[in-house]
Amino acid sequence: MATEVYRESFERRTKTVRYIRLLEGLADTQVGPLYLGMWGALAFFSYLLCVFITAIGFGEQVGYNPIRFLRELPVLTLYPPPPSQGLRMAPLQEGGYWQLATLFLTLTLVFWTIRIWTRAVANGLRPMVPIAFSAALFLYAAIYIIHPIWVNSWNEAPPHGLRGILLWTNHFSVKYGNFYYNPFHMVSIFALLGSTVILAMHGATILATLAYGAHREIDEIEDSDEGTHRAQLLWRWVMGFNATAYSIHQWALGFATLVAVAGAIGVLLSGPAEPDWFQWGCRAGIVPGLQKACVP
C-alpha cells in the first residue's frame, strides 16, 4: 500500500460502508468509504451553486410552481445572453443566470479533475484517469468557453436544459453548414463508434474468459495466464490480430481520448476558420454526385 502523499485540510472518509445486495454476482457490492478532501469540498460546493442558480433560473420561468416545474422540466432552458450582449456580463434574466451557472460548472469540473489527480497519486496510481478526464474537459472548454470567446459572443454556447442542449447540437450543425462534412467531426464520430466497438470487444472477451481468470488484468499484464492466452487467440484466429492485456487498454485510452480531442478541434475551427463545412466539402471534392448542391 502506497503512502498518502497529499495532506489536505478536509481529510476525512465516510465511516459507514454499505453493501448493495442486488449487485451480488454481477459486480462488487461495497459502497464507500467516500473521501472528502479540500478539492472534493470545493467541487461539491461549486456544483451546489451551479445547481442552485439553475434551479432559480428554472423556477422563475415556472413561477416557482413545483408541479409546473415537473411538467415543463424537459423544455425548461437557461439561455446564454443574446448576441447583442457580446461577451459582457449580462443581466440575470437575459443570460446572467447562464453565465453564473456556467462559471460554477467550469469550476466544478476543474476541482473534480484536481481531486481525481490527488486521489490517484495518493493511492499510488499513475494519474492516467485525470489525464483522460482532462480530454473531456478540453472538449467542454472548447464548446462552452473558447469558441464563444473566439467568435465574441456567449450566444454560441449551449444553453442549460434537457431540450436546450439538443437544440444547440442541431443548430450549431445547421449554422456551420453541415457538421457531417466537418473532417474533425468525422474523426471524432469514428473514434466514438470505435470506442463502443472496442468496449464491446474487450468486455465480451473478458466475460467469455472469466472462468480462466482473465479479468484479473493487473496481474495478467505482468504474468499472462491461460485466460489471457485464450482471449488473445480468439482475436488472432478471428481477425489475424490481437492486442495484449496491456495494449488493449492503450487502444482503449487512445480511442476514447481521440473522441474528445478531435471533437474539440472541429468545434474550434467552426466559424473563425471555416464558416460552412459543406462548402469545405465542395472544395475538397468529397460531396457525392456532381457537386451540384454547391451553390456559387
Binding site: 437544440l167 443548430h171 445547421v174 449554422k175 456551420y176 453548414g177 464558416p275
Partner: peptide
C-alpha cells in the same frame, strides 16, 4: 437563411428562429 458565411454575425438566435 441561417447558414453562416464569412460575414455572418455571431450568435445562434437566428438559427433558433429559423428552426
Amino acid at each position: 437563411q441561417v447558414t453562416a458565411t464569412k460575414d455572418t454575425p455571431p450568435g445562434l438566435n437566428d438559427t433558433y428562429r429559423n428552426q
